[in-house]
Write a protein that binds this DNA or RNA. Structure first.
Length: 188
DNA sequence: GCAAGGATATCG
DNA sequence: GATATCCTTGCA
């Protein structure tokens, strides 16, 4: 329900802005592949490579609206907390906080999408269009819900005009958009 | 408001 | 090899 587009080496917000590197190599390959990177040392972010081979581009998946597999998503969130705690067990406080997360906020941010889905950098290169892949994109419908476009988030370093490009696309009425309180009528 | 956290790209 | 920075989150 929330994605951002990054396209070309000209896009100063894109990982391709420095040209091809070990990290972003998959962005230069065929479309439909997963590109997962680690940001801020603790969060994995899922991207879908787009554009034909040779043209670096990807779409960052920033939020999902959970429909099924809710308990698995909660388990994924719990695993992520355990990893950050470097502990085999959660504290009582951790369990309280996790239990307080509403179903529709289980994946309301790019790092949370990966945590809830159990995705990390090892998924890079997965063919998301192959029905045999564990991680894949399947046909769906947005059932007439309206799409809105806004500037991308967290890319101030890119400068204009990239900061203002309306390349974040959202299902405007979703309660699952990223951010602290978007679910209860946030700014966007 | 800000610390945590580790990889990355770049500079010396 | 050292360092500044990062497509974030959840705390105080």
């Amino acid at each position: 329900v929330e994605v951002e587009a990054y396209i070309g080496e000209d896009d100063r917000a894109s990982h391709a802005r420095f040209g091809r590197t070990d990290r972003n190599a998959v962005m230069y390959g065929p479309p439909g592949m997963a590109y997962v990177y680690l940001v801020y040392g603790m969060h994995d972010c899922l991207n879908v490579v787009t554009e034909p081979t040779g043209r670096p581009a990807a779409v960052l998946v920033r939020a999902l609206e959970p429909l099924e597999g809710l308990s698995a998503m909660r388990a994924g969130r719990a695993d992520h907390v355990r990893r950050s705690r470097r502990s085999a067990n959660l504290t009582a406080r951790d369990r309280e906080r996790l239990a307080a997360v509403p179903d529709d906020r289980l994946a309301s941010g790019p790092g949370l999408v990966a945590a809830a889905m159990g995705i990390d950098r090892r998924a890079t290169g997965t063919d998301l269009l192959d029905p045999g892949s564990d991680l894949r994109i399947e046909a769906g419908s947005r059932a007439g819900r309206s799409v809105a476009a806004t500037p991308r988030l967290g890319i101030g370093y890119a400068g204009e005009p990239w900061v203002s490009r309306p390349w974040r696309l959202i299902l405007a009425d979703s309660p699952s958009l990223s951010g602290p309180s978007r679910g209860r009528g946030g700014r966007d």
